[in-house]
Design a protein around this nucleic acid. Structure first.
Lengths: 151, 151
DNA sequence: CGGATATGTTTTGATATCAATATAATATTA
DNA sequence: TAATATTATATTGATATCAAAACATATCCG
């Protein structure tokens, strides 16, 4: 009985080492944090974060979009999208309007000012993303494919 | 002059479509969110989140570790680690002690109770991670390699 | 020894994230 | 048409995330 505990501990130690090395959830969180920090830094001069850049980018369409599809595309909870829109609306980069066709729904639009910020930020993205791809030293395509398969 | 604006708009539209499809930061955030939700769900019966699981897992060592190396391993800001330890400490799963060798430093330790929760959670992880790898339908190795190269 | 510098952690304030719940409006159906 | 169900978003409360600044302790060097 008392002899059993050390064996369980050793098994657990083996498992945790395996998990540290192989857990895709852990590896994805680490990469996501590192990339967010990197692009946050690069975009800081333009007053937006990496997440806000992605959101502005998605909203840059001819026709306004509702929240549901945007949240789904970003693989994000709808309530998170609600929260994320607030600073952008406050800065005047997006506008949120009740859909007259269905008054439960909101139409999301990038503003002229938002497009101006986005245009400048795209320049930063191009530079930074090219640097990233060259730095990682692996073919980015299978990586993108894997990430797409997960989300 | 007036003719210039439509061209800029069209160029921006092309760029934003390219970014939606290719941005590794965006793809990583989406995958990270989807995986966190999935493992949060699976681990909920054990009272911990996916991030807390990863942290407990890292702390499951014979010798206590300082915060710096843990934050670095998790690719996370030190202040984020400080915040993440609080709920775990409150639940009695980890303990934080001043390092007598260097009183600026803290030693992090998983408790017996923490190890008990971890042991149960590892079972969930094995089941869920195997399901994930079979679902994504791509070789997980290049994906892991890419994520490792980023973080 | 003692001031300047470096290192390790915490605090603060802003944004991000989710689940659960609430609110509002549309759609269905009895 | 009225009650019920469904859909779309917002609110609340907890955790997560980071940068900047504050704090505490240690080290360096004059």
């Amino acid at each position: 009985m008392a002899k059993n505990q050390p064996k369980l501990e050793a098994d657990l130690a083996d498992a945790t080492i395996h998990i540290r090395d192989h857990c895709l959830c852990l590896h994805a969180q680490r990469a996501a944090r590192a990339l967010a920090r990197r692009f946050d830094d690069a975009l800081r001069p333009h007053g937006i974060t990496s997440g806000q850049f992605s959101l502005l980018n998605v909203l840059n369409r001819r026709e306004p979009v509702a929240m549901g599809p945007v949240a789904k595309f970003l693989a994000m909870d709808r309530s998170t999208l609600t929260a994320n829109l607030k600073p952008l609306e406050r800065q005047g980069l997006v506008s949120i309007e009740v859909d007259p066709e269905d008054r439960r729904s909101r139409k999301l639009l990038i503003t002229t000012e938002g497009r101006k910020v986005l245009r400048a930020a795209v320049g930063v993205w191009k530079h930074e993303h090219a640097a990233l791809e060259s730095e990682i030293g692996v073919d980015p395509e299978p990586l993108r494919a894997g990430l797409r398969a997960i989300a």
